[in-house]
């Protein structure tokens, strides 16, 4: 399952970041979004806009196409 499949307000554990763009992945890891962390999908912007997620008490905003590469469970 991928992050984009998650329902709004639901939580999951990140399992795979392997498929992501290298720079985006670096940034996300720096911000604390890494494999094994719990992630919560807070909100989704309309028209295929970005997503807001919460990891380690920190809100991060990322694009849908990047979120579609994050494997969660």
């Amino acid at each position: 399952m991928f992050l984009t499949d998650l329902q709004q307000g639901k939580k999951a554990v990140i399992t795979n970041l392997g498929m992501m763009n290298e720079v985006v992945k670096q940034r996300l890891i720096h911000m604390g979004l890494q494999e094994g962390e719990e992630i919560c999908l807070k909100c989704v912007m309309p028209f295929g806009g970005p997503l807001m997620v919460e990891v380690c008490g920190q809100c991060i905003c990322l694009r849908r196409k990047d979120a579609a590469c994050i494997g969660v469970k």
Binding site: M31, Q58, I60, C61
Partner: peptide, 8 residues
């Protein structure tokens, strides 16, 4: 590329 931190 777009990743941004949302501060409280």
């Amino acid at each position: 590329i777009f990743v941004v931190e949302l501060p409280p």
